[in-house]
Design a protein around this nucleic acid. Structure first.
Length: 608
DNA sequence: CGGAGGACGGAG
DNA sequence: TCCCCTCCGTCCTCCG
């Protein structure tokens, strides 16, 4: 922690500028409050129609951190008019992290950030859907500015706060609550500066986390706007090939209907609707099949003529409902797939998405993802990210060495810890998820012997969770406490009159929560590394575009993001430069989060 | 009759 | 012997 702190300690720089963006009271003018690092402040208002021009002007002239109540509320309109910013501080996302974080505990969050429904009961506009981007402001396209990973995390960067008593909704509806962005910014800063006095490392980590989270919020809006190039015609031929021609709405495609008929015939159930799971299960059992569910993994191990057509039907049915013609009409209309990304949508800090099912873009449809003519898609995923992050967090030298500059699972085999790569993978997943059955259980003791520090970290997290405690990621995102129902089950088991049933139920629920907290520390810390990586790539791409004098439509851009995978859409002649940038950003992220290791090669990335 | 909730599949 | 973790969308069934 001390090392992290030393390398990234933020000192106020004289040119630092903070601008808070907010609505001026009872009007459609926006107030911009500029705060300098020496404590000065200055405010002026602009007409909402001129906001984009104003922001572009300030952004071009100064290094700024824009502060607003929610990136989802303010940024889409700017991006739609061609105005992008380098950095922001998303007050709502930051508040959520600070309120929950154990790292901010020593200074008492409750006093520093008192409960406030205007902030705490507000979704920030992330749930509003794509229509929330409908509003338009007029502006010229400014030149994008440049940055890089270190700059993205330049904590001394100036701040512009937009303070507003309401968020800019289409139609300017009356606000349900009033939020003062300047006040909230100051509360959060006070909390962090107070924390820094007694716990500089903790304050530093939280500042990194807030910067990363906010950068992700900007990227999420830009990703939706730019989209992933997607060839409708290719996807349509995939659908036709697997399902038959597009049917009337509500009707079953021909190939699925044929499979349904076959299933009914084999089972001797002429009225069977294979989409009805209870009915299907009943018919399977009536035919003497010993199954307790209709799931794939159970059907797989059964030898019966119905299994093949049924499995095929399920596959097709899934394709139709999740990524069929209706999906295509809704989500890939203009040659781009534009899911709505929701930063921080998952407790662990990963993103979720709403609409379009972006978080399970199935492999069968990825064929339709094609670069524009003269462009390339640079697809990169951080291989075996979670075990590497675990090794780094726990400073497990042996595990770090196993993954250094190569396939980590292969490294486990070479080190003689396990005999095959497959075993390495199963065993490692058991370490991360808390698996205790079958093969995994046999492998765990070997891994525990070889990598005691890594094992201790996740075991401690699990034990804390089992006891109802809270665990925290590397940069300070804390897990939620178990709910009242969970506590009630535990309490019931410790009653004097508790029977074996209560005890076993309580134990099982406790283990369940322990598996959650075990995974939380690793998944959440990995998400932090990925955000740092993404931030570096995002700003590096802006720098690249600026150096080459490219306009928005000529510039390479982030096109897709999924947990540990980045896709950049780039002009052919820039593809190599982008590849280099992506790798450099990964190294920079590793140094930023784990400076004590001195291992920038922590996370190698095979290109896809 | 509308919404809650379960089952399932697929992503990491 | 617990189909190990986190999500999302769709469908069906059931309940108020």
């Amino acid at each position: 922690m001390e090392a992290v702190d030393e390398s990234m300690t933020a000192t106020g720089s004289p040119g630092a500028l903070v601008v808070v963006v907010d609505y001026a009271e009872g009007s459609d003018r926006v107030r911009l409050t500029t705060l300098t690092s020496v404590g000065g402040s200055d405010e002026h208002t602009v007409d909402v129609d001129n906001l984009a021009v104003e922001v572009a002007g300030i952004e071009r002239a100064k290094t700024v951190r824009w502060v607003w109540d929610s990136t989802a509320a303010w940024y889409p309109v700017l991006v739609d008019t061609g105005v992008r910013v380098e950095r922001c501080h998303d007050l709502r996302l930051a508040r959520r992290i600070l309120l929950a974080s154990e790292l901010s505990g020593p200074v008492g969050q409750a006093e520093r950030l008192p409960a406030d429904p205007a902030w705490d009961d507000w979704d920030g506009g992330w749930a509003a859907g794509p229509e929330s981007t409908a509003a338009r402001l007029a502006a010229e396209h400014p030149e994008p500015a440049a940055l890089f990973t270190q700059e993205a995390f330049d904590l001394a960067a100036p701040v512009v706060v937009t303070t507003s008593s309401e968020t800019p909704e289409p139609g300017h509806e009356a606000p349900a609550h009033s939020r003062d962005a300047v006040e909230e910014w100051q509360r959060q800063q006070t909390l962090l500066t107070d924390l820094a006095e007694g716990h500089p490392g903790a304050a530093h980590r939280l500042r990194l986390l807030l910067a990363a989270e906010s950068s992700g919020a900007l990227a999420a809006v830009e990703l939706h706007h730019d989209g992933l190039p997607f060839r409708r015609d290719i996807h349509e031929s995939t659908l036709t090939e697997r399902l038959g021609p597009r049917p009337r709405p509500g009707a079953r495609p021909a190939k699925l209907e044929a499979l349904a008929r076959e299933i009914r015939e084999i089972l001797g159930a002429p009225a069977l609707n294979p989409d009805s799971l209870p009915h299907l299960l009943r018919e399977l059992r009536r035919n003497g099949l010993d199954v307790s569910s209709t799931s794939k993994w159970e059907l797989e191990r059964i030898d019966h003529p119905v299994v093949a057509p049924l499995t095929q039907y399920k596959k097709g049915s899934r394709l139709l409902s999740a990524n069929g013609w209706a999906w295509l009409d809704a989500w890939a209309t203009d040659g781009r797939f534009r899911p709505d990304y929701v930063p921080g949508g998952v407790v662990t800090g990963r993103w979720s998405s709403r609409g379009g099912g972006a978080l399970s873009l199935p492999h069968v449809i990825r064929d339709a993802v094609r670069a524009q003519e003269g462009w390339r898609l640079v697809v990169v995923d951080a291989a075996q990210l979670e075990p590497r992050i675990l090794a780094a967090m726990s400073r497990d030298e042996a595990m770090l060495a196993a993954g250094e500059g190569r396939d980590l699972y292969g490294g486990l085999v070479e080190a003689g810890v396990v005999d095959t790569r497959a075993h390495a993978k199963v065993g490692m997943l058991a370490v991360l998820y808390g698996g205790t059955s079958g093969n995994a259980a046999l492998l765990l003791p070997r891994l525990a012997r070889a990598y005691p520090r890594a094992m201790r970290l996740v075991d401690d997290a699990a034990r804390t969770g089992e006891a109802g405690g809270i665990v925290t990621t590397w940069l300070g995102r804390s897990s939620p406490p178990p709910g009242p129902e969970w506590r009630a089950v535990q309490a019931a088991a410790s009653d004097v009159g508790a029977g074996a049933a209560e005890e076993s139920r309580a134990r099982s629920r406790a283990r369940e929560w322990g598996r959650f907290t075990r995974n939380f520390v690793v998944q959440g810390s990995a998400a932090e590394w990925v955000l740092a990586w993404q931030a570096g790539v995002r700003l590096g791409l802006r720098r690249l575009a600026r150096q080459r004098g490219l306009s928005d439509s000529e510039a390479p851009h982030l096109a897709f993001f999924l947990h540990d995978e980045l896709v950049v859409h780039a002009p052919v002649e820039l593809a190599d430069a982008v590849g280099t940038l992506v790798e450099e950003s990964a190294r920079a992220a590793s140094v930023l989060l784990f400076p004590h290791l001195g291992r920038p090669g922590l996370v190698p990335m095979p290109f896809g």
